[in-house]
């Protein structure tokens, strides 16, 4: 079964809605609390990133018997130095975003930490797609 959400950048105060909605779905399906917690943290982080860095985007979630896949796709600026972005503390966030307390450089490392598998596809000027997977077994 699949679930799709749109992350609207014009309403940053609503960021996190998709994560909370999908979390509700997983609870209804009886997914284990451990997986739900890990997925919520990773997906929320990704959703916030989409709003701060990438002008929103789409989230596509697939639930299979053994695995949950969350694909977060944006048409933002892309990540120029992916190796660095995967290390804690490095950030491309604008001064404005940093003034709001975002862009501490923990986004991608945090997502990697909480997901069982993370693939980042990015191209400068085109956008970024994060594919995170969570094992159910």
């Amino acid at each position: 079964m699949t679930f799709d959400y749109i992350v609207d950048p014009t309403e940053p105060e609503r960021a996190g809605r998709a994560s909370t909605k999908f979390k509700g779905v997983l609870k209804e399906l009886g997914v284990s609390p451990k997986v739900i917690r890990a997925l919520s943290i990773a997906m929320y982080e990704g959703e916030i990133n989409m709003v701060i860095h990438a002008n929103g985007g789409n989230i596509h979630c697939e639930v299979d018997a053994d695995k949950i896949r969350v694909i977060m796709k944006d048409s933002g600026p892309g990540i120029p130095e992916l190796d660095k972005a995967m290390k804690p503390g490095w950030s491309t966030a604008s001064t404005q975003a940093r003034e709001l307390g975002f862009g501490a450089g923990m986004g991608l490392p945090n997502i990697k930490k909480w997901s069982d598998n993370l693939v980042v596809e990015t191209e400068v000027g085109v956008g970024t797609t994060l594919t995170m997977e969570f094992n159910l077994t």
């Binding site: 079964m1 609870k27 209804e28 399906l29 009886g30 609390p33 639930v63």
Partner: peptide
């Protein structure tokens, strides 16, 4: 104890079908 009241069904596949 976890109260599984939020679950649609204890069976995952059945829960998916019910959700659809």
């Amino acid at each position: 104890e976890e109260a599984p009241s939020i679950q649609l069904s204890p069976d995952f596949q059945e829960a998916l079908r019910m959700m659809e």
